[in-house]
Structure formats: structure tokens, C-alpha cells
Design a protein around this nucleic acid. Structure first.
Lengths: 207, 207
DNA sequence: ACCTCAGTGGTAGTCACTACCATGTCGGTA
DNA sequence: TACCGACATGGTAGTGACTACCACTGAGGT
């Protein structure tokens, strides 16, 4: 069974990766990003420095790598193409925020939410992380615009698409920063909704 | 005359800095950013590597440092505070674009415009430069929002201000990218105007 | 003539990251 | 059961960005 083979390997690999990232973020929070070397992270995780680099191409990726960016992009491209772009993006943002931070029953932060909060604080306060994070967001913006296809072929349409996509992502970013400053007490999905309404008016939201 | 003293010193320093940056950008364009070391730049400029670092804190700043960011910020904060933010920012962007790229009489690109074009292409194509450039833009956004003072104290107003400022800067960025892709043939101020209109409608522009 | 100090150069070191090769170990196969 | 292959990992040696510390020089101002 080659399926099970690769599956087990992948699980093993994913677990190692998760452990390395968890130790990295913990150390970065405790000692600061710049004051922590990749060797420190490797020792804490019980692996060699080379293994760290095998799982994370750069030190920044120890904080920035997550599944949510790809998940968000999939969610956006999977939404009905007939609807306006800002609604598609807006709903994907709100849905993701809800799923990621609160458990439905208790309303408390999920462990993933707490981890995201720690990573966000690092991203906001550390210049190197902030810069690369913004570049990732810009790449997502280009992916969103690219998903429009020929719709954005002419200059004017392209300007519109870039403006709409960047405004969506800026709204998300503003909401994330506010959420992090608030220590995660506010509801992230709510903040995203408010930021989107502030940028585009009430029309974006469903229901 | 302590004035002349510091003035002459500053001129000397500024000239060295300009020469280093010119050689750096030329080499980056010729050989590529990653394939060019700071030592290469230092040798080309006829100075020691340490002198390069004295004038530019990081290798990225060899491409990113310019006076226009500060100039733009001053222009924005100097504009009448009574007017809407997007109009203030928009007019400052259009004015700066006009001043920086075309001579009034011939309509050709100024040397500064050609230099800006080369730097822009590097910023767009090199990940490290793009990331730090986006972080600089984000810092400018925060400065713009900060210039609003208590106007943006409440959450809702802050969301509005962040959304407006980021949309302005995204419009500028879109125009700059389009201008660079067009090899500088189009009129930058025109592109900025079109991007602003695409984002906000006709209302932003004066006259 | 002397002093000051900004601008510059040298040396040695840290750290992120890479290329190349060796090892082990686990899953599938004869 | 004995073997094989492939992937995850470890080691070594290097490059390049960047810093800390100290020394020199030359152009002001007294």
C-alpha cells in the first residue's frame, strides 16, 4: 500500500514540523526573535539545525508558515464566481476568522487561536516578519486578482481589481492588528466584518 | 560659520551616498541583486565595505532609500487638514509623480525618473526588496493615519482611516507597477489618477 | 600651530543559509 | 527472512550580510 506508506511518512513529517514551529514561537516570545538563533530552536526541538531548514526555508517562515493562507485562497476561488469579488473575499475572511479562533460551544479561544495570536504579535512587532508577511499578503492579492482571469485584462478593470483586493486584505489586516492589540478578547470575525463595512459599506455582508 | 561647516560636510556625505547607490543599482541591474555582494558595490564605488554600511544600514536600503517617501509624507501633512483625507493623499501622489518623472518642457523622463524606474523594477522582481518596500509603505500608512490624530481614536474611525490610507497607497503601488511594466512610457501622474479614480470614483481629483 | 571630530579603513566575529556527502531506519519486496 | 530503496536526518565546510571595536586621516575652528 503506497498510500499508507506516504501517508505515514507525511504524518511523521508534519508532526516534526509542528513541534519545531511550536518551540520556535515559544522561544521567540520568551527571548525575542532576533535574540533567538535557529540553533536555539533546533536544540529546543531536539533536532539538528539542518532539520529546521529542511522544514522551514527561512527563519521567518518559522512564524509565518501556516495553512490558513492557502485555505483562504481555496475558499475564495471556490466561491461562486458570479458574485462580486469583494463579497466573495469578505465572506471567506469572516468564515475563516470564525473557524480559527473560537470553539462554537464555549466561546473561548481555541489552542490554534492562541497560537495565531502569539504569531500575530511577533509579526506586528518584528520588522523582518512584518515585511515578509506583507509580501505574502501581496502575493495573495495577486492570486486573487489573477483568479479573475480576463475580467481584469484591460487597464481600468485591472486597477479596479487591484484596488478591491487590496482593500479587502487591508481590512483583514487592520482587523487582525486590532484583535492582537486586544489580546484576542474581541471576536475576530466581528472585527473583520466591521473593517469590511468601514471600507465598503453595509452592502458586502450576507444576510 | 558652523552653518557652512555642517553644510559642506553634509554635501560631501550626500555625494558619497549618491555615488554608492548609483553604482549599487547599476550592478544589481547588470548582475542581479542576489548575485551582487556588498563588497562588489563597495569596490565599484571605490570605498570600503564599511563605508557602504555607514551610509546604508542594509543591502536592501541601497535600492529602497530615497527622499520621496519623506517628501510625500510632508506634502500630505502640509495640506489643508479640513479637506478629506483621500483628496489630500491623492493630490500629493499626483503632484509627486508629475514632479519626479517628466521635465515640463520636453516631456521626456528625467534622470531621476529613469533611476526610479530601474529601482522600481528591482523592487518588484526581488522578493527581499519587495517585502521591505511593502513594509515601508505600511509605515507610511501608519504615519498618515497617525497624522489624523484624535479623529481616528475610536475603533470605527480607525478602521475607516486605515481603509482609506491603505487604498490610497495601494492605488499608488498599482500605478507604479503598471508604470514600471510599461517601461516608463506612460505618464505616471496619469496612472496614479486612474488608479485613484478606479478605487474611489471621480470625486477625489481637484478641478 | 593645535585640537576636534566626522568620515573612513581594518580585523575579527556572529548568524542565516547552502552544497555536498554520510548514515540510519522504516516500508515494501524477492 | 533477508534484502533493497527512499526518505528523513546529521555533519562539515563554506558564503555573505552585518556588527563591534579600534585606529587613522584630514578638514574645520581656536
Amino acid at each position: 500500500m503506497p498510500d499508507q506508506h506516504s501517508t505515514l511518512r507525511a504524518q511523521r513529517r508534519a508532526e516534526t514540523q509542528r513541534a519545531i514551529q511550536a518551540h520556535a514561537v515559544r522561544l521567540f516570545v520568551e527571548r525575542g526573535y532576533d535574540a533567538t538563533t535557529v540553533i536555539d530552536v533546533a536544540e529546543a526541538a531536539g533536532v539538528s539545525p539542518m532539520t529546521v531548514y529542511r522544514h522551514f526555508p527561512t527563519k521567518e517562515d518559522l512564524v509565518l508558515v501556516d495553512q490558513y493562507g492557502r485555505l483562504l485562497a481555496e475558499r475564495i476561488t471556490a466561491s461562486p464566481a458570479a458574485r462580486p469579488l469583494v463579497r466573495r473575499v469578505g465572506n471567506a475572511l469572516v468564515d475563516s476568522a470564525t473557524a480559527l479562533t473560537r470553539s462554537g460551544t464555549t466561546g473561548d479561544l481555541t489552542p490554534e487561536g492562541r497560537f495565531l495570536l502569539a504569531r500575530l504579535r511577533l509579526m506586528i512587532s518584528t520588522p523582518a516578519l512584518r515585511a515578509k508577511h506583507l509580501d505574502n499578503q501581496y502575493a495573495l492579492q495577486q492570486a486573487i486578482v489573477g483568479a479573475l482571469g480576463e475580467e481584469a485584462a484591460e487597464p481600468d478593470a485591472a486597477f479596479h481589481a487591484q484596488a478591491a483586493a487590496s482593500a479587502c486584505l487591508a481590512a483583514m489586516h487592520t482587523a487582525l492588528v486590532r484583535w492582537a492589540e486586544d489580546e484576542g478578547r474581541a471576536d475576530l470575525a466581528d472585527l473583520v466584518r466591521k473593517a469590511l463595512v468601514a471600507a465598503f459599506g453595509d452592502g458586502i455582508l450576507d444576510g
